[in-house]
Design a protein around this nucleic acid. Structure first.
Length: 561
RNA sequence: UGACCCGUGGUGUAAUUGGCAACACAUCUGAUUUUGGUUCAGAAGAGUCCAGGUUCGAGCCCUGGCGGGUCAACCA
């Protein structure tokens, strides 16, 4: 069989997970079925790390004509809340995936799991341990010293059965008894040293209420849930690698036919300048470091969405970093590149001034307003054009003028010429300063012959500035978001708390001026404010108080050297 | 000092059966441009953790080191 070049390059780009999947397919495993699942615990909002999992879970199913379930891993009523379930559903949909009604809960299987536990007891493979957790922990041994067997390890089947049933009836207090799998206290893998599989919890569960007093542990619930749902490939992150022997052990005891799920682990997403642990994100929400899970500085999907990141850009980013078994730290600039690349094609170019400096065109008639034509996107004619008002008084960006400009500064300075985007070439004749020496006002003249698009517009000047007409511009609140953390690895310091690395300037709220017409923009529509970056209208923005969030800044490559 | 996993430019990935180490980001030039954006062209940057071995040929196979990660929750 010969491959076409495209087939070759397709196989070339296969990640190791898909290589495993194809191998299983070739070997005819599970009758050629591909079925994955995305299994979040509903104890927080989804973040960009989950996007990596979502893309491989749903993406693999999509690629091989299989299915992907959504399964809420809700085995611990102490930590989980209904509130999170809705946000998780919404975020998956936002990324462009659908579980087609196959929404399951680990708690759906509490009955089956209980029966399986009873079965293990009957087969002499599980026992009730009456010891407190500290004693069980101390008997576990260490990574280099074998563990000790519990004195309750060899109870009779009848006694175990009786005790386990009474555990579930609420006869015993939390922490007084657990059910353990009987495997091997001397196993080199700690997870095989008689792991706890059921514990008593006296708190109502968000779905099953008070029906159960005992709840299965992750290891006892996850693989079995996979099995019950017919999952063929259970994709998870690297830290579960050492759990795999236990996963397989339970499946061995449960298997009734040839079908068997397979766990494959990949590297989790780590981003520079970003904290991804749900525990820490929750702490930032609780400590009011940020204004909630969807604060635009948060790495949550809802935060990124509000900030203006598009689903497509996140998908491209995830694809570009790939899936391997190497613990990687991905550069934040790669994400920003993906956003700019995506937005560049779709975002109309509009004018805004963030830090205004007044300019008076001295030879322009007072009271006159011109409607100038400007294209929405110079690279995409189909996006059309619009008109913007020009008048005698304008704002330009304060940083676009230098009293004493260095050699390679192409913007405005005394006696310098510059083009106003879509308008005229102007020349700075004079400027005023206040008592502190700050420049307060520029007096310029314009050259009527150089009107943009006109017959004589061809004269070249080095710089082009964005501007707005003071009379027509709309004042808006503009939120400039920067990195929340100052250190590339706020999470990676053993001695120092990640909170010590919080950037006090991560949010700057300013009043700027935008060209008229943006007030009717739809929420989340993107704009490129010339040279300032990509912005979007905040979902909470009101017509009387426009709020724009900066999605990502453009790189201003001019440096004062 | 146990078990398992992993070491490829600064970062992240690729390299078919063992066959010239490739791509993207980042960095630096230059060109075009009514955005110092975009686009285009180019440069620099690793000889694949180390040492042996097998082979005509090793990033890939074997052996031994070294380095990093995960695991000893009644969390997931």
């Amino acid at each position: 069989m010969t491959d076409t070049p495209s087939e070759k390059s397709e196989r070339r780009s296969l990640n190791f997970i898909h290589a495993f999947v194809e191998e299983d397919l070739r070997e005819g495993k599970n009758e050629g079925r591909i079925h994955t699942r995305f299994p979040p615990e509903p104890n927080g909002y989804l973040h960009i790390g989950h996007a990596k999992a979502i893309h491989i879970d749903f993406g693999t199913a999509e690629k091989y004509g299989g299915m992907c379930n959504l399964r809420f891993d809700d085995t611990n009523p102490v930590k989980e809340e209904v509130e999170y379930i809705d946000s998780i559903r919404e975020d998956i949909h936002w990324l462009g995936y659908d579980w087609e009604g196959r929404e399951f809960y680990a708690s759906d299987y509490f009955g089956k799991l209980y029966d399986f536990a009873v079965d293990l007891i009957k087969r002499g493979l599980a026992y009730v341990d009456d010891q407190p957790s500290e004693v069980i922990a101390s008997q576990k041994g260490t990574t280099s010293v074998p563990g000790l067997e519990s004195p309750f390890r060899n109870r009779t089947v009848d006694e175990n059965l009786d005790l386990f049933q009474r555990m579930n009836k609420g006869e015993f207090a939390e922490g007084t008894r657990v059910l353990r799998a009987k495997i091997d206290m001397a196993a080199p893998n700690m997870h095989m040293r008689d792991p706890v599989i059921y514990r008593i919890i006296n708190r109502p569960h968000h779905r099953t209420g008070t029906a159960w007093k005992v709840y299965p542990m992750y290891d006892f619930a996850h693989g079995q849930s996979d099995y019950f749902e017919g999952i063929t490939h259970s994709l998870c992150t690297l830290e579960f690698e050492v759990h795999r022997p236990l996963y397989d052990w339970f499946i061995d005891k449960l298997m009734t036919d040839k079908y068997r799920p397979r766990q494959i682990e990949f590297n989790r997403l780590n981003l520079t300048y970003t904290v991804m642990s749900k525990r820490k994100l929750l702490q930032m929400v609780n400590d009011r470091v940020v204004n909630g899970w969807d604060d635009p500085r948060m790495p949550t999907l809802s935060g990124l969405r509000r900030r203006g990141y598009t689903p497509g850009s996140i998908k491209n980013f995830i694809n570009s970093i790939g899936y391997t078994k190497v613990e990687a730290l991905n550069d934040y600039s790669l994400l920003e590149f993906a956003v700019r690349e995506d937005l560049n094609k779709t975002a109309p170019r509009v004018m805004a001034v963030l830090d205004p400096l007044k300019v008076i065109i001295t030879n322009y008639p007072e009271g006159k307003t011109e409607e100038l034509q400007t294209v929405n996107n110079p690279e995409d004619e189909s996006m059309g054009s619009r008109t913007i008002p020009f008048s005698r008084e304008l704002y330009i960006e304060r940083s676009d003028f230098m009293e004493d400009p260095p050699k390679k500064f192409f913007r405005l300075g005394p006696d310098r010429e510059v083009r106003l985007k879509s308008a005229y070439i102007i020349k700075c004749e004079d400027f005023e300063k206040d008592a502190e020496g700050n420049v307060t006002e520029l007096h310029c003249t314009y050259d009527p012959e150089t009107k943009s698009g006109g017959a004589n517009a061809g004269r070249k000047v080095k710089g082009t500035l964005h501007w707005v007409s003071t009379e027509h511009a709309v004042e808006a609140e503009i939120r400039l978001y920067d990195r929340l953390f100052t250190d590339p690895e706020p999470d990676g310091h053993k001695e120092r708390e990640f909170m010590e690395f919080i950037n006090p300037d991560s949010l700057n709220v300013i009043r700027g001026f935008v060209e008229p017409g943006l007030t009717s923009a739809k929420t989340l529509d993107h704009f490129q404010f010339q040279r300032l970056g990509y912005f979007n209208l905040d979902p909470d923005s009101k017509p009387e108080n426009l709020v724009f969030n900066r999605t990502v800044a453009l790189r201003d490559t001019w440096s004062n050297k």
